[in-house]
Design a binder for these strands. Structure first.
Lengths: 146, 146
DNA sequence: TCGGTATCATGGAGGTTGTCAACGATGGAG
DNA sequence: CTCCATCGTTGACAACCTCCATGATACCGA
């Protein structure tokens, strides 16, 4: 692997970004399978758990940067597993609020521990100050690229 | 979008990584379509151009972190477009050396300009020192996650 | 020299993701 | 009431990832 360092490609930020992202996602996915989740589903579950009164699927799509049609399937799967449920919204009958069940909250807590532990190896070697810097840079890249 | 900042998820490095990576890849892909390339093919083309005596498909797979079966298809497409060609290796007859053609080198030069320009917006706002720091961190994450 | 084992390129299956178009139901403005 | 936007949903299609199998070739030990 060291053989390739210094090559134009391995210095390309886009390439490094995609490579690092893939590695982290892969590690996280591996840790989540024992809980019956993939990262995507886990993200939805987290957002549903943290929203006091549930989340609109539209909001989920916006936050996660997904097409609404993907959110439908993710919520279907989570609902099928009994981790969330769809409730009608009183304010807007077009929308359906995704709310975490008690089982969902329990699974989320377990899965969160597993996920955190899984990325401890690749991300833990960064000092907290570095991680903060990385967070800042990634956020700026994301908002600039829209 | 600003509404969601500060949420546990939007602070998660894995999430930010995948989000930023996706944005950059999307932007790069958009810039490359006018040259008939996707990022994957472009990466292969770059490596083929920079290797004096061609690259083994195995090496391509290792450097890019792809399954060898994917490399076959990418090289097929590039070869179909006349940008690279497969040459038998004298040293090892199992392998086939992927070598860039003159047309391939021309396209690479044009595509490189387009790709660089495309990520100027999201990545250009980072100072050079910051970019160096980002490169370093991403490389460490990648090597640690293997 | 021979035989077993490993490696390379390739093909194929199966599942996940990204993107887009359409549709019915509902909300909101004029 | 009418026109237009929005939400969830479905369907289609291309790209991508992962794993397994195979034929050809290389390498190593007996």
């Amino acid at each position: 692997m060291e053989v390739f360092m210094g090559h134009p490609l391995t210095d390309d930020l886009g390439f490094l970004l995609s490579r690092a992202s893939g590695a982290v996602v892969r590690a996280t996915n591996a840790a989540l399978t024992s809980h019956g989740l993939r990262v995507r589903q886990y993200s939805v579950l987290v957002l549903a758990c943290d929203a006091a009164d549930g989340v609109t699927q539209r909001e989920l799509a916006d936050v996660l940067g997904l097409d609404p049609s993907q959110v439908v399937l993710l919520v279907d799967e989570l609902a099928g597993a009994g981790l969330v449920e769809r409730r009608p919204s009183e304010a807007d009958r077009r929308t359906r609020l995704v709310v975490a069940t008690d089982a969902g909250r329990r699974v989320r807590a377990d899965a969160e521990r597993a996920a955190t532990e899984a990325v401890e190896v690749p991300l833990g070697l960064l000092a907290e100050a570095e991680r903060e810097r990385l967070r800042d840079m990634l956020t700026r890249i994301w908002t600039a690229a829209g």
